[in-house]
Amino acid sequence: MRLNVLSRTMVVSMMFLGLLTVTTAVAVMVGTTSQDIIALLFSGAETEQAGRTWMILLEYRLPRTLLAVVVGAGLAVSGVVFQGVTRNPLAEPYLMGISAGAALGAVISITLSGEYQFFGTSVAAFLGGLVSVALVYGLVSVRKKGDYVNTVILAGVIVAALMNALMLLVMSVSSSHELQRILFWLMGDFSLADYQEVQVAGLFVAGGSIFIYAQANRLNLLIAGDETAAYLGVHVARTRTLLIIAGSLVTGAVVSVAGTVGFVGLVIPHVMRLLFGPDNRVLLPACFLGGASFLAAADCIARTAAYPLELPVGVVTALTGAPFFLYLLIRK
């Protein structure tokens, strides 16, 4: 029996919402210090031990897991957008050089001010990401002729290369302590998340995702081809610009609080497409919730699996996601 789009969206959303709830609950319960949480929840005792456990749950594990949820959702959704707009399966949220720009901003903040002056690393990273997108977009709009998609991809690659070179230049004068901090930033780090970051990133991700979801059908038409879309009444250039801006803002906000977490934005959209088909009206909610669950789970594994060490979350996402993706690719 073939369900219509709305029912399919509902079924998929419910399924992943359940998965997300379970993942988040497990992630909050599991940690590096052993706490008898179940006993604590039901005893209702107000001991010092209980207070400390609550503090670890509410002030450390929960904001951290929520940030992973927000980042995973944002990256997966903007992955769908960039893959759709450029009609390129290799596109990912960092296509417009956002990660390189953000990394440059972060490196400048860490090296030149030791993180302690100006606004801090997050703001510097956000601004760096915006500069990159503005540069790429500027290049694309200046070059009126030629294939839009190829221009975006080329401009993105070139701007990213430029930003990378500048970053390496700054890094060459950094001391070993600074280099180590830069490395932590580049690998993605949720360990010190607070609710403020969750709020800020959450606002961007929620707003951006709602906007993108509202354009889901137009994105479907864009993927069918510029001409087809235009015949069917889509303002091709305007829709594309708006989608790219929305995707960039989401990615920029997410990268500025969590660093460059790889893999999620590239592979979650593909996995969901293999599972539920290419219709963006189903794909976007599936990616939003699926990306969130995946990154929350990956972060939980990252902080507990190699105790007493903490693994970089990007390593966990790639190590667990890549085999699963390959399996799907072969089976379908």
């Binding site: 940690g31 210090t33 400390r52 670890i56 450390y60 010190l192 902080r303």
Partner: peptide, 8 residues
Amino acid sequence: PDPERIID
């Protein structure tokens, strides 16, 4: 260092 263990 692990913030959770520090808090604990």
